[in-house]
């Protein structure tokens, strides 16, 4: 999994509440052999018309936000189905951090498995960050996971909370596989012992 320590990037404002995973990635894109490649269909129905043309108004279609790495969004982001395709699509587009007042539980968990940092802040602070994001490409926001801070383009700093174990995993890029790989010495030792005892395996 991609490590997350510090991020300085463009933040896109998406002030809708209750953005569900169907909106993030509609079901017709689940018939895939990939986790990657879903970025082009991220927010598909908000982003394209029925002929597949971009809807100019949608924030990620605006020149200023095409390279966005941070989303500042409304309440209850990621509700609905448990599909991991939602964080897959976000990650594939390039989103590394999402800031909201609250997230749906499963989506929140899925983010950590895919190198995305979901940040929960109180409404007033999200409001400040939302206006900052609205400034466009010249305003870069900073996220520092180690320090647990978000800094606006004006230098205003907000601290956020995060579970220490999840923080550890994200900073070190550890998922289940990463954690198991931390026990590589035990696996190596087992393998050496087993291949001596059962060389035919």
């Amino acid at each position: 999994m991609q490590k997350f320590d510090k991020l300085s990037g463009i933040a896109a404002p998406l002030p809708l509440v209750n953005i569900d995973t169907d909106m993030i990635i509609p079901k017709q894109f689940l018939k895939t052999i990939k986790r990657s490649g879903l970025g082009v269909n991220l927010f598909d129905e908000m982003r394209y018309d029925r002929e597949g043309n971009e809807i100019a108004d949608f924030v990620l279609n605006k020149p200023a936000y095409r390279e966005a790495q941070i989303l500042v969004t409304g309440d209850n982001f990621g509700c609905g189905s448990s599909r991991e395709h939602a964080p897959w699509a976000l990650a594939d587009f390039g989103i590394r951090a999402i800031i909201s007042t609250s997230f749906a539980d499963i989506f929140y968990n899925n983010c950590f498995k895919n190198g995305i940092l979901p940040i929960v802040l109180p409404q007033e602070q999200v409001d400040v960050l939302m206006s900052d994001a609205e400034k466009g490409a010249n305003a870069r926001m900073e996220v520092d996971l180690e320090a647990q801070t978000v800094t606006t383009s004006d230098g205003e700093v907000f601290g956020f909370e995060i579970d220490p174990h999840r923080k550890h995993c994200l900073i070190n890029g550890l998922d289940d596989i990463g954690l198991t790989l931390e026990k590589a010495a035990a696996i190596d030792a087992f393998e050496a012992r087993a291949s001596a005892e059962r060389p035919w395996v």
Binding site: I177, T180, L181, E191
Partner: peptide, 8 residues
Amino acid sequence: EHVLATQT
């Protein structure tokens, strides 16, 4: 994926 990567 876990087994592919770790054989466990």
